[in-house]
Structure formats: C-alpha cells, structure tokens
Design a protein around this nucleic acid. Structure first.
Lengths: 166, 166
DNA sequence: GTCTATACCCGGATAGAC
DNA sequence: GTCTATCCGGGTATAGAC
C-alpha cells in the first residue's frame, strides 16, 4: 500500500481545514472519493480525527519554536508566524478544551517547553506569557483590532513587558 | 406601551445567549412568542441584533472598569470578573471582527480607555495589555489550561509583567 | 471497508397574504 | 407587524446490506 486511508484522510483533512476553515465529515469524504459513513471505519468520531490533526500541529509548532533564535522576541515571532501560517489548525488546537486523552504522550509538553524556558522556568509566568501571545494572535486573526492598530508594535510591547521583569 | 418589541427582543436575546451560549433567530422568536420571520421587522438581520447586545456589553464593561480600584491588579481583576460573568457575550464581542458601523459612537472607546490609561497612554502597550488579558480569559473559559494550572497565579504574573516596565 | 438509506438535529433569510 | 410557507444551506452519526 502506498498510503493508508487513515493517513490520507488526515492529510486531506488538513487541506480542507486550511482551505475552508472547517472540517465536516461530508466534505472530507467528498475529497477522498468516499461517502461520509465510511470515515467512521477509520476514526471513532470527529474528535478522533481532530485529535490527530492537533497532534501534528503541536509537533510542528514545537519544531518551529525550537528553531527560533535566542531571546524572547525571536520566540514570540516564531510563535506568531506559525499560528498565522496555520490559522485554522491553531484555532482548532486552542479554542476548545484539549482532548488530552486522545493525544500522544508528550506532544503538548514539547510545544510548551520553549515557553516555560523563556519564562525562566516559572509555570505561572509561562502561562501568562503563552496566554498573552495567544491573545494577540486570536485578536489579530479575527481582525478585531482597529484598522489603524500597529500590531508589530504591540508584539514589541509584549516582548518588553516580559523581558526579565521578575 | 410598556416596552417596545425591539427592547424586549434585546433583553430576551441576552438571556438566551447567557443560558444557551448562542442566539438563533428561531429560538429567540420562540421566547418572544412570535415567529422567526417577524424578527426581521425589528432588526435588519442577525448582525444588527448582535450589535445591540455588544453595545450594551461595552457600556457595562466600561462601567465595571471605571469602578475598579486603582492599580493594574484591580483593573485586571475587574476585566476578568466581567468577562467570566458574561462569558458568551464577551465571546460574541471579541471573537469576530467588530461591526463598528453598527455600533453607537464612543462605546468601544469607552471600554478601552481605562486600559489605555493603565498602559500609560501608549496605545501599543495598551493593545498588548488588552490582548494579554483577553488571552487568559479565553483560555480560562475554554478550559484550555491543564487542570492543575493556578490561574490566579498566572494573572498575578501578568500584572507583574506589565507593572511599570517601560 | 464501502455503500445506501436514514435518523436526528440545526441555521438565516425571503415572499406574499392578512 | 404578524403570519404561513418555503427557500436555501448545513451538520454528526448509525443500521444493515454487500
């Protein structure tokens, strides 16, 4: 076999999510040339499919953050870039309670580790830092800021706020 | 007349949003004892109805922030409290591009002013501060943090990061 | 592992009569 | 300003045949 249906479905689901902003089992089945009920032979339900995508996203994000240069501005820039390049996957992975029971061990932690390091190892500070970056991203993605807002400057202000304050 | 249909509809829409987490024109009409098409005599479309709710939310949030005590921790606490007490309205007002064309003049600015003041008048810093609080709120509301996360401590860490850094 | 058929649910909005 | 009738669309998931 060149590729299992499951792997093919995950690949197409990412394309579908990227192109249309949402996944439906019917639309995904159309792309695969099968009928929607057949998908349930490969995934128990939609959450199982989504978890596979989210796991991929965490792994890629972790690599992107590891590859960022030193310093908080570089880390924030890498985080922002990855999120804006994968807006709907980012949204899928953050807007709802994480189904940790469906995720491979360690993927969430791998994506979070660079942030904890940047926060000096303080988990509370790391969560504040992560949430701050997340807030800028979701507001930016939703075009929620006024049209004249200078978002690059806002990101710089965020980096400055968290620059070795403690 | 005791109360116009429009005002009644807005009131019921808020209850519907608070109780069920979403507004549908059909569900709203049911609550009012009318049929869904009749709502379109009072609002041009759903966005027009939502804008009325969002405007109310901004006004109430502005009052809550004005009433917060001095200091960044108090401001953040007031913001957090209002958002968590009105989670779905908060979400409605922040998760999508704001229809400023449907909003009364000044309501957005009124809600934002206390944040700008807290940021020392720097609009970029104010946006970073706002987004940071927003990020904590949406992640908290979505139950996206790990179960053992100490969110009060994260809020304290945020306040410290923005404590007169510049 | 695929299919057909189907179950159930939901949504926004318009036309035209009264 | 309300109604009925209707338009369009969407969705997750299961049963049972092949």
């Amino acid at each position: 076999m060149a590729e299992g249906r499951r792997a093919q479905a995950i690949r197409e689901a990412r394309l579908l999510l990227a192109e249309e902003g949402a996944i439906s089992m019917r639309r995904l089945a159309d792309r695969l040339g099968i009928k929607a009920p057949s998908l349930y032979k490969h995934f128990p339900d939609k959450a199982g499919l989504e978890a596979a995508l989210i796991a991929e996203g965490f792994t890629e994000l972790a690599a992107a953050l590891e590859g960022a240069g030193d310093g908080l501005p570089n880390l924030l820039a890498a985080y922002r870039r990855w999120a804006l390049e994968h807006p709907h996957l980012y949204d899928l992975a953050t807007r709802q309670a994480l189904r940790r029971d469906l995720l491979p061990e360690g993927v969430e932690e791998a994506a979070g580790r660079p942030v904890v390091v940047a926060a000096g190892g303080d988990p509370d500070r790391a969560r504040a830092l992560w949430a701050s970056a997340h807030g800028l991203i979701v507001l930016e993605q939703a075009e929620r800021f006024p049209p004249d807002a200078d978002l690059d400057a806002a990101w710089r202000a965020l980096a400055q706020a968290f620059a070795t304050t403690s």
